Simulated assay, not measured.
Amino acid sequence: MTQAFTHKQRPNAFDAALISPAPRPGLAGWQRFCVEFAYFGIKEARSCLFAGLFFVAVFAVPRAGIAGLPRYDVLLLIALLIQACMVWAKLETLDELRAISLFHVTGFLLELFKTSAGIQSWSYPDFAYTKLFGVPLFSGFMYAAVGSYIIQAWRLFELRIVHHPPYWMAGVIALLIYANFFTHHYIGDYRWYIAACALGLYARATVLFRPFDRERQMPLLLSFVLIGFFIWLAENLSTFWGVWQYPNQLGAWSAVHIGKWSSWSLLVVMSFTIVANLKHVKAHVHVPS
């Protein structure tokens, strides 16, 4: 089933070609595998456009900054420029931008708490003019990048969700996930209990996606875990380049603890819940009555 777009959601020519390629029903065997794999890779790269460009900037901008402007400030300007260009080029709609802004705000609030004097889970060691309570404003875009990826992938792969849990239940789990990032410093870490609830809630949920001209499917929970893994890899690269540091990395870099993978996977569940509540996305989510 081809997704219908309203005028506000009409894709640009490149996205339209990816979404509606000329069907090839006679394609089979290894040839079909290669074509679908190629389209899958292109759509994934396109979905990661904001995240990819942003993290290229993270790795490319020298620690000393550019032309006297500190690195964190340069990264903020680059992130804003990328976001503006995507809206101008109709790679994102204004509705999607509003949702991505919500990711930015929730992520930045988490950063403020985690880097505070009483918590100090990690830190941003470099100077910047655009730091607020020790947190550079660009940091919220790292969370926005996750939301941008989910939104773009939803459109390009024409995602449909079968057996999605009731929205109110998904919302409660998302709130518990977010709250636990704060409360585990005071009343214990309940992430595995929340993860068990999420496992039961999404156990039947299946994501249907279209790499080329046929729908494929996979468990929705598996997609959460896979996205969380790639975010964990990106976090390792970012800490290696010194963008931020955990306390155990102050003397010399070491890999981010594998336990962070679970945290990122839960954050993906929360991010997915926000995207699933967008008006034009709800039409492609099946909630059993």
Results as ranks from 00 to 15, higher is better:
residue 152 Q to I: 04
residue 166 P to R: 14
residue 161 I to C: 06
residue 158 E to A: 12
residue 160 R to H: 14
residue 163 H to M: 10
residue 156 L to S: 01
residue 170 A to P: 02
residue 158 E to F: 12
residue 183 T to M: 09
residue 166 P to V: 13
residue 180 N to F: 01
residue 163 H to Y: 14
residue 162 V to H: 12
residue 154 W to N: 13
residue 154 W to F: 15
residue 149 Y to V: 12
residue 179 A to R: 06
residue 178 Y to L: 08
residue 177 I to W: 00
residue 152 Q to V: 08
residue 170 A to S: 15
residue 162 V to G: 06
residue 160 R to L: 09
residue 184 H to R: 12
residue 157 F to E: 00
residue 158 E to I: 12
residue 173 I to H: 04
residue 171 G to L: 13
residue 151 I to L: 02
residue 177 I to Q: 00
residue 184 H to D: 05
residue 157 F to H: 01
residue 152 Q to S: 15
residue 182 F to C: 03
residue 164 H to V: 05
residue 170 A to M: 07
residue 167 Y to K: 11
residue 154 W to V: 05
residue 153 A to P: 03
residue 179 A to N: 06
residue 150 I to M: 08
residue 149 Y to D: 05
residue 152 Q to Y: 06
residue 175 L to E: 07
residue 159 L to M: 14
residue 158 E to V: 09
residue 148 S to L: 05
residue 167 Y to R: 04
residue 184 H to C: 07
residue 161 I to V: 15
residue 169 M to G: 11
residue 157 F to Q: 01
residue 158 E to R: 11
residue 176 L to W: 11
residue 150 I to W: 04
residue 159 L to K: 01
residue 178 Y to K: 06
residue 183 T to G: 05
residue 184 H to M: 07
residue 166 P to W: 14
residue 157 F to G: 00
residue 178 Y to A: 08
residue 166 P to K: 14
residue 178 Y to R: 05
residue 176 L to G: 07
residue 171 G to M: 10
residue 153 A to Q: 07
residue 166 P to E: 14
residue 182 F to D: 02
residue 167 Y to H: 10
residue 161 I to H: 02
residue 172 V to C: 11
residue 172 V to Q: 10
residue 167 Y to G: 04
residue 170 A to V: 06
residue 158 E to Y: 08
residue 159 L to G: 00
residue 182 F to H: 04
residue 173 I to R: 03
residue 169 M to V: 12
residue 163 H to K: 14
residue 174 A to L: 09
residue 181 F to A: 09
residue 152 Q to T: 13
residue 164 H to I: 06
residue 184 H to S: 09
residue 182 F to K: 03
residue 178 Y to T: 08
residue 149 Y to C: 11
residue 153 A to G: 09
residue 156 L to T: 01
residue 149 Y to F: 14
residue 181 F to L: 13
residue 157 F to V: 01
residue 166 P to S: 13
residue 182 F to N: 03
residue 162 V to S: 11
residue 165 P to G: 02
residue 168 W to I: 13
residue 149 Y to A: 07
residue 164 H to C: 13
residue 170 A to D: 02
residue 172 V to K: 08
residue 181 F to Q: 06
residue 179 A to H: 08
residue 180 N to W: 01
residue 154 W to K: 05
residue 153 A to K: 03
residue 154 W to A: 09
residue 159 L to Y: 01
residue 176 L to D: 05
residue 168 W to G: 05
residue 153 A to N: 07
residue 155 R to Q: 13
residue 161 I to P: 00
residue 177 I to E: 01
residue 177 I to P: 00
residue 180 N to Q: 04
residue 168 W to Y: 13
residue 175 L to H: 11
residue 176 L to E: 08
residue 171 G to C: 12
residue 182 F to A: 04
residue 152 Q to L: 08
